[in-house]
Design a protein around this nucleic acid. Structure first.
Lengths: 275, 275
DNA sequence: AACCAAGTTTCAATAAATGAAACTAAATGC
DNA sequence: GCATTTAGTTTCATTTATTGAAACTTGGTT
């Protein structure tokens, strides 16, 4: 992370810098906030552009993320995330609970939402999946942290920003740590308006047979519409769903493990009914 | 592409190799199909894993794509693709035509679908957007190629595989080139079951004010359900939509261009109503 | 016309990637 | 139970690519 990981690390840092912006960035903007010398940055940008990871607008001279990323991520999402595999389970859970469901995984120290079901509005995947949130003040985030091995947990706690989004936010490592112990003991976590006023949730971890944290699952609602107790009522369903996802994930995890019938997940990546 | 672009290029090649697989890959599998020497590949994999671009399963020792890609791609999709900006236009077009709509961009020599609307089934973004298709035998692909500057066009034609998906497929550079000339003259392209039996479409390019190809837009249907003539009837609507998308894209293209009111696109990347 | 800013190229010094081979660990065969 | 193969990891002298200061080019400004 801090160790630059050679040239590749630097290149990915540059990519990240471009990704942080909401708009195309010019060379000099990047140069200003980058440690790298002019010529180095220049060539990294060229390489990344060459590779399709960045796009360089000839007219304006500005760089933006390249579409190759979208293709790679589609693969990542469909082969490495829990989302495609969890889809039927999430559908069922959403129907059963009538509430908003989140499926998340850890991306470094942050929560990455890989899927979402909401009762009312239909799913809008790409605009929802791929979003990130803080780990220390969301239901799924805290719950995933709680079930991590101590060394990893410690490392990630150090990386949290502890910004107080609301007056409920656990804004110190100590408060968070106490909460994580409680979550681990209890088996599930809460969000009591710690990230956003009014928003509450109940979250459970998705654990592999070996106890490794695969992801997190939550039912979310607004306290004006649903009581925390009601959400807690969905705990059995949540836990059943989490277990079902973990089982499917185990089947998928490695070739020649489960004999056959695992290929259900495959989803043609080349677009049919093309246009 | 062939010129390895230094270490960064090699690393991205490795990433791509992992992405090609539907399942986690072991070190030796990658080694077998890679030109790279053992030690080099090994360290590249380490670096990429370190950086969160790959995930390494400690138990099985297999590599899969990392979730960091999903986050990056969400940014790429929402800041660099036409999709978020085109969304309202696509919605309107889908409603108006009652047919399946595709929005695509070029990713190297391939067509990358960044959004899709279908009349019946509701949208499933991530599972649709991000898919790729061949450029030489899809409506949007051929149409985008047709409006490219000759040098780029030539380069991309050379990169096509010319596999004959159907007996309608234009399976030589010559046939494709003739078709591209016709499309450029006519202003729009067709897919006459060239990629998939029964599937037909009419496609138009999305061009910037300067004539640069930003993307492609198509109405698609099955010949048993809709006649090509009917799809052609939607051409005015298609063209209007393409122009509208291009105009919105121009406003967005660069900072301090259009004074204000451009910020409509911004879409909080941090997930609210979190869970 | 002179100036300035942004971006691009050069080239010797330097740091990093390389890859052959040695090593370790675990699985498989005898 | 010991030898052998297979898969993955580490080492280190060699080679190669990256580096970065500075010079240069381009396009816009006063």
């Amino acid at each position: 992370m801090t160790a630059t990981d050679g040239t590749v690390g630097k290149a990915l840092d540059v990519l990240e810098k471009v990704a942080e912006r909401d708009r195309p960035v010019r060379f000099s903007d990047l140069l200003a906030e980058s440690e790298l010398p002019k010529a180095t940055l220049y060539r990294l940008l060229q390489t990344l552009t060459n590779q399709g990871m960045l796009r360089h607008d000839a007219e304006t001279g500005a760089y933006s993320l390249g579409v190759r990323l979208v293709r790679l991520a589609h693969r990542a999402w469909s082969t490495a995330s829990l989302a495609p595999l969890a889809r039927p389970h999430l559908d069922a859970l959403a129907r059963q609970t009538g509430q908003t469901i989140h499926l998340a995984q850890l991306d470094t120290a942050q929560v990455l939402y890989v899927d979402k079901r909401s009762a009312e509005t239909p799913v809008e995947m790409f605009s929802q999946a791929g979003k990130i949130g803080p780990a220390y003040c969301t239901g799924v985030g805290k719950t995933m942290l709680a079930f991590l091995p101590v060394d990893q947990q410690d490392r990630l706690i150090q990386q949290q920003s502890f910004h107080a989004f609301t007056d409920q936010t656990l804004d110190t490592p100590e408060r968070l740590r106490a909460e994580l112990v409680a979550i681990a003991a209890r088996g599930h976590g809460y969000d009591r308006e710690e990230h956003e006023p009014g928003i509450i949730c109940v979250a459970v971890p998705i654990l592999s047979a070996g106890g490794r944290v695969l992801g997190g699952l939550s039912v979310t609602g607004h306290k004006d519409h649903v009581a925390l107790a009601t959400l807690e009522g969905h705990l059995p369903a949540l836990k059943t769903t989490a277990r079902a996802i973990a089982e499917d994930a185990a089947d998928w995890a490695f070739p020649e493990r489960g004999s056959e019938a695992v290929m259900t997940r495959r989803e043609e990546d080349t677009c049919r009914e093309s246009g």
